[in-house]
């Protein structure tokens, strides 16, 4: 054997550089297709207008304005749906065969997935900020302490990031972009609508209420809502963290092990 042409260096710094390289590539995509960003913001804006002005009058929320009840739900929903772009982007890459190029390069194996989810997180920051602006326009106000408010938005983004991995695992399983998006939304829809996002769970039948009270979307929305309205956040925050940790552990490992075999 002759000397290696390129010395093989495996290390954390290289892994992180690969992730940054991939994230850069995906961010360029986001910046160069601004129309996608615009259209993915329209849907949550419609939800705000719909619930604020059409259904809002008929929904009774305990203590406080409905708009302050609604917007935390909208933030979380927006971040969650934003995770779908991970499914679309990843399955596009798989379909176009560029993932084969990446997998034959000496880069960290996790960089394709991590770079993708991180870029989608950046994208979610923009969309969620936009939703905050829209919220402020329709009368929503932050009532928590500065730290609590920032923490709430951090929780929203972390939750969206967590679901990016769910969408990544789905995309790697089904491979086709359209199917990936549809399949990814299957579990998301019941989680978002059978939750405390738009209406208080008290009006739901008992069996549904029991589900709505413990599922990840509800507890996260309740935690965010408590933080931004300045109410005691109670058990919701740690329940939300438990869900986030559990979902990350399960879906990061599913996604990475599936990625090895595509």
């Amino acid at each position: 054997m002759t000397e290696d042409i390129a010395p093989v260096r495996n290390g954390w710094d290289l892994g992180i550089r690969d992730i940054l390289g991939m994230a850069w590539r995906n961010l360029v995509h986001i910046v160069r297709t601004p129309q996608l960003l615009v259209f993915s913001s329209i849907q949550p804006i419609m939800f705000v207008l719909l619930f604020r002005y059409v259904f809002g009058g008929a929904i009774k929320t305990p203590g406080g304005d409905y708009v302050d009840y609604l917007l935390p739900g909208i933030f979380v929903q927006t971040a969650l749906f934003g995770g779908a772009s991970t499914a679309v982007g990843l399955s596009e890459d798989l379909k176009q065969g560029i993932v084969d190029r990446f997998r034959a390069l000496p880069m960290a194996r996790s960089a394709v997935l991590a770079g993708r989810t991180i870029a989608d997180l950046c994208r979610n920051v923009i969309v969620v900020l936009l939703m905050v602006a829209v919220g402020l326009l329709v009368g929503f106000r932050f009532h928590g302490s500065f730290v609590a408010d920032i923490g709430a938005m951090g929780l929203v983004l972390l939750f969206g990031y967590t679901f990016s991995w769910v969408f990544a695992a789905v995309a790697l399983a089904v491979r086709d972009p359209e199917t990936a998006q549809l399949a990814g939304f299957l579990p998301i829809f019941p989680l978002v609508f059978a939750s405390s996002a738009f209406v208080p769970v008290q009006t739901m039948p008992t069996w549904l209420r029991d589900f709505a009270n413990v599922q990840p979307v509800s507890v996260t929305i309740d935690a965010v809502r408590a933080l931004v309205t300045g109410a005691p956040v109670g058990h919701w925050l740690w329940q939300s963290f438990v869900w986030i940790a559990a979902i990350l552990v399960v879906f990061v490992s599913i996604a990475i092990s599936r990625y090895r075999t595509v």
Binding site: D4, I5, A6, V8, N10, R25, V28, H29, R32, T33, Q96, G97, I98, V99, D100, R101, A104, L105, P106
Partner: peptide, 19 residues
């Protein structure tokens, strides 16, 4: 892992980034 740093692959279908 070591092998990947000394090989170059051009697959049957062009694998380049369109954007």
């Amino acid at each position: 892992a070591q092998l990947r740093s000394v090989i170059g692959l051009a697959g049957q279908y062009a694998a380049v980034d369109e954007t």
